[in-house]
Design a protein around this nucleic acid. Structure first.
Lengths: 199, 199
DNA sequence: TGTACATCAGTGAACGCGCGTTCACTGATGTAC
DNA sequence: TGTACATCAGTGAACGCGCGTTCACTGATGTAC
């Protein structure tokens, strides 16, 4: 699986294109992104990009996947270094990521559909959701979460995820300009949910 | 405040334009909506629409406001006719609305920013959020919700809203094709959150 | 009731634009003998 | 080491398109006397 010099050059150019696209999206939003602007930014002709990506959509969805793995890393880090309950730390990290990279975050969720189609298939190792599922599973084992009969780990993980995602989306779109102590409100929300899960 | 015949005619045409735009958005998504297509659909020339709306953006944001008031009505209805806890009913209605009118729902939240800028200003009478706030307030009065010290009604309402909104957004975008019993999962999530709020 | 005028409710054509993508091509680099 | 050829990494120009908006205009409708 080692790379030839040629492959390394190509990979670097690919990433430069992605970075340029990401910056432009940050400036103007996804819907205003144009291939020609990306090409200008990386000093290629518009046609040149077609050596690296099959079309515009491929650039955008590759970018969305990169965001997903960045979010995964952020959650994993939060989970490992948590001082209090891991699920609160993960939830807050999710929201913080969304606030700090709101264009990336919105891009990711507007373009990236779940690859799973049902609970039957396993959760992808590199998915942000995986971190939540694992934290719930270990919460159950440690006894801090009590699982009601007929409820699956995933159902609990889904509740936590919905909470994270709702807060992140609201703060990123509808409540973008709303001034409030979201940190406190979010912490309260997660703690309350966890209390409900404890009984 | 009564309308002249002329005003009634204009209002009808305005609504026809909005309906056409809404249908086109449903077919192709907001980002592909074109004024020319709307004009075609209502049998006007493209220029004719400018008698009714100042520009394309005005059509879209008017539409978003109409969706908001439809959501308000749906939540209010759920709140009034609830059999179990009103907040669960409201939450489920929110999600149902999002599922049944997903393009409308997404349009609303991508275009409509909160008019409030902080908790200091009152919640708008006609906002969907108002229904949640009211339900929380009456839950506190009836004793089914217990408010911790230093927490405001709004902080609790926000938690519930985040839960609704997260579930609705996930089911509408990232998990659109995921097969699961969301109804059960959502009910569980709301009940758990309420249990946390009861203690 | 008739007529002159004003306003209404639009239209047609154009402006000026940027877009994604394709395709024939070219100079530079790498390879084989 | 030199040379012939192949592949690489692009480019320039064009295709064909739809878009939002403006503006001079026009026929129909309404109004005043």
């Amino acid at each position: 699986m080692s790379q030839s010099p040629k492959e390394r050059r190509q990979a670097r150019t690919r990433q430069a294109i992605l970075d340029a696209a990401r910056e432009l999206i940050l400036e103007k939003g996804v819907e205003k992104l144009s291939l020609r602007a990306v090409a200008r930014k990386v000093d290629y002709s518009p046609a040149g990009l077609y050596e690296y990506f099959t079309n515009k959509e491929a650039i955008i969805s590759t970018l969305a996947e990169q965001v997903s793995s960045q979010l995964y890393l952020a959650l994993e880090k939060a989970s490992l270094h948590a001082e209090g309950p891991p699920l609160v730390a993960i939830g807050l990290a999710y929201i913080q990521f969304a606030r700090e990279h709101s264009e990336d975050f919105l891009l990711m969720f507007s373009r990236l559909h779940s690859r799973r189609v049902s609970e039957d298939s396993p959760v992808a190792e590199d998915s942000p959701y995986k971190v939540v599922v694992d934290a719930v599973a270990s919460g159950i084992q440690s006894g801090s979460i009590c699982m009601p009969t007929h409820m699956s780990v995933e159902q609990i993980a889904y509740s936590v995820w919905a909470m994270c995602h709702g807060a992140a989306m609201l703060q990123t779109t509808h409540l973008k300009d709303f001034q409030a102590d979201f940190q406190t409100a979010d912490t309260f929300a997660f703690q309350t949910l966890l209390e409900g899960l404890a009984s």
